[in-house]
Design a protein around this nucleic acid. Structure first.
Lengths: 169, 169
DNA sequence: GCTGAAATCACACATTA
DNA sequence: TAATGTGTGATTTCAGC
């Protein structure tokens, strides 16, 4: 039962800023947006309370890891009943190497982005998690050579009048 | 000329924590890890200074957006000279809808993850950015039905003795 | 939106290994 | 000598008005 809420221009400006830097003092941010510091703080707290901001985190630069590689992994299951799919998804959720998992239409059932230290670690991962899972019919690996863009930032239009969003609370 | 730096157990514990929550007071975090507050702060500041922590951000829950959809887009270029590839990558970097872009081996040159408000917006995006770019030979869209996992968290082994990472400064 | 109390951050210095 | 811990002043957060 999703409730809805409107984000006004100020909310969207705050979100655009906080997605770049959430350590900026509320006072500095308030000055930037020409509002008072308590208003700024209240808005931010509200966005967190209702779940529009779901977390506040440090971002670790993946390229800092001396030896890291990515793999795309397409997987089709033997048994696609709800129970087995749920099982597979739960398993991927547990594995730290799995950065992203999508349920897709087409030839394969799942598309995974896997992050490992090197090719040997990838081989170990595939044997342990994929081919060893008992419910994988077929899988296929592809290796991106370079990540040229990666962002989690959602850009909000700061001019539009109003935007409706679903909220948790 | 990448410099290297060792991350000890404490660094890795801090990184694991801060990737979940970077708003925790340094004092609370220090108590958790049985160190003093200034030590905790110093280590964190250092991890930021050397670039292991590349940013500190708020995470917006994408499912809060009332109408959002994802698309996978595979693109092959007409001209693969360095100049044109650089050009394409720079263009994708500018477009807010492009969440991820990878240079891949195989049939296509690039794999994109695109986030738009609805199918019409996707059509507009493709016409404007992809088929309208002048250097795209072929492209192909796939639509993930469900994002079952998405994380940017890199999990560090807190038991291993030492880990070398590349640093910027 | 303003003000003030409580908490957090951030520094200089002493201490330890 | 390099890194940790102690104590203290400056900032920031956050509630009441």
């Amino acid at each position: 039962m999703p409730q809805f809420r409107a984000l006004d221009k100020l909310d969207r400006k705050l979100l655009n800023q906080l997605q770049k830097d959430n350590q900026i003092p509320t006072r500095t941010l308030a000055e930037k947006l020409h509002i008072s510091q308590p208003t700024c703080l209240r808005r931010i707290r509200d966005l967190r309370d209702v779940g529009v901001i779901s977390a506040d985190v440090s971002v670790v630069d993946p390229s800092a890891l001396a030896f890291g590689m990515l793999a795309f992994l397409e997987v089709s299951l033997v048994n696609q009943s709800d129970e087995f799919m749920h099982d597979f998804e739960a398993r991927m959720n547990k594995e730290a190497e799995v950065m992203q998992c999508y349920f897709v239409s087409g030839e394969y059932d799942y598309f995974l982005v896997v992050h490992v230290i090197d090719m040997d670690a990838y081989y170990q991962f595939v044997r342990r998690v994929i081919s060893g899972s008992g419910n994988v019919r077929h899988f296929h690996s592809r290796f991106p050579m370079k990540k040229t863009k990666f962002t989690t930032r959602i850009s909000f239009d700061e001019k539009a009048e109003e935007l409706q969003v679903k909220v948790k609370k």
